[in-house]
Amino acid sequence: MRKAFVPLLAVAGFIFMTAPILVTRAPYESTMGLVQKIFYFHMPPAMLMLLSAIFCGIISAIELIRKRPVYDWIAYAAAELTVLYGALAMVTGPLWARKAWGVWWVWDPRLTMSLLLWMVFVSYLLLRRYGGPGSETLAAGLAVFGMATSPFVYLSVNIWRTIHPLTTVVPTLPVDFALPLWYAFTGFLLLYIALMTLRVRIEEQRALVDQLYLESEE
């Protein structure tokens, strides 16, 4: 995995450099016009945030069963990346909403769920940072609960009306729209994997340094 880092970053960089060309060449959406272009940079991070949160929850559950440090490193990296991608989605979303709906924010199920999921993982990072020793296990418990709570948030806000476009539009997109979307998605995904590799490696090195330090003390 370590060797894959540089090629991954290079490919992701190439995609991010060329994605604007594809996005420019994509046709204008009939009702929203130019504003709709932000979609290509809004949906991929939003979707990856959700996937990353689920990934972190599953890895944390495994960590609770068999306590191996590597699961902890992966879960920590996934939580940080969830917050990062969530922040990207949370910045691009309101910019789009302001033009498309006329408001910066609405309390619609998808938005509420994303915000809460993002908050759960911010609190995960706060716990890791300020919780002191032993907070890894507590954070793993929190991630499992955070993952379990989001369907309930979605369900409970869904009883009100929703105005967010349904994700079912994605598979039915015409190819002119779908191509730049999945191109950008690939870029974000590769960046995710590259950052994940890097982050896990940092934790691994940190654990090694701690261990060497302890050994030199003896």
Binding site: V120, S123, L127, Y130, G131, T149, S156
Partner: peptide, 13 residues
């Protein structure tokens, strides 16, 4: 400080 920070987002439903 951490208790309400962790508790409220999870119990929002």
């Amino acid at each position: 400080v951490l208790l309400p920070i962790l508790l409220y987002p999870v119990t929002i439903p």
